[in-house]
Write a protein that binds this DNA or RNA. Sequence first.
DNA 1: TACATTTATGCAAAATAATGCTGTTTTTAT
DNA 2: ATAAAAACAGCATTATTTTGCATAAATGTA
Lengths: 164, 164
Amino acid sequence: MKNKTARIQKIKDLISGNCIDSQGKLLSQLQECGFDLTQATLSRDLKRMRIAKVGDGDGGYTYILPHAVTPGVHVEHHASAKPQSSSPSGFVSMDFSGQFCVIKTRPGYAGGIALEIDALDSVFVMGTIAGDDTILVILKDGVSLEEITDVLENIIPTIREKTV
Amino acid sequence: MKNKTARIQKIKDLISGNCIDSQGKLLSQLQECGFDLTQATLSRDLKRMRIAKVGDGDGGYTYILPHAVTPGVHVEHHASAKPQSSSPSGFVSMDFSGQFCVIKTRPGYAGGIALEIDALDSVFVMGTIAGDDTILVILKDGVSLEEITDVLENIIPTIREKTV
DNA sequence: TACATTTATGCAAAATAATGCTGTTTTTAT
DNA sequence: ATAAAAACAGCATTATTTTGCATAAATGTA
């Protein structure tokens, strides 16, 4: 076996960092990084990792990391030091687009979580508006998904796993 | 064109209700339901809808809607269970601009209608926030008036006549 | 240690999915 | 209303992904 664990980690990095639209491309990048494998193995890795290829809304495709899938529990391999969700147990998912970010919560939690976001007093956030189970976060012009995720991660540690 | 809107809706129903692991199977089911299309068209539909195929954690694959299902109970909407076009009598008007769509309702109806919109689970809608007589629908970047109208028409048949 | 099991992989073939091109239908603009 | 543009969908073909089979590496067991 040729270091599967490191490979898996690298795949995650590549997927989340770049726009990859085929196993062939991903394979090349992995090989450039020194991993020695074939496309068949990669296909099996992706299957196990529940990584999927989806339309990117702009004519192409892109691979994405999984988000809470119904059957079973998703086990994070390198469990590591993620502080346990001390916070908003009401958080459900996050979606980003343009100048906004929409956070879905369990019914009734939106207001509370919005307050926490406001309290962060981030320069990236212009403001929030909360309903019962949805929060609209209005971002400063030009803020990226990466940036806002970094901010929100402070109160929702698991946010990266739930971002659509 | 052979009723694309209905087909799209049916695809969602099938995807969320069953475990489908290939376009071929999905195609068969659609055909059994009376839809006449080819695999090529289906492939394009899935791309536009951002539906993805992922490992199901049990040796197989399954197609999933882009919005992860809320952990816990997942209520499937069968065609029949669709919030009947009770033509929300509370609907008053719709206004569209940029990445938003504002729906005016009769006092007290906003929450209910927003729920119906959420239930559509449309790829075009990031979320909704409802007050007492107004619903703010946050759209995915780039969604057109035409697209969102098609979606909302499912629950508000008369929407085209009331769009500002 | 020696043997049985399980897990990983490569290879090549099979199965699936994506798309270029083209004729139509539907919209939009004039 | 008519022309021009955009959206759809089929067919055939190409590209990509998945998998059966066989082998090797790791793990478990007596």
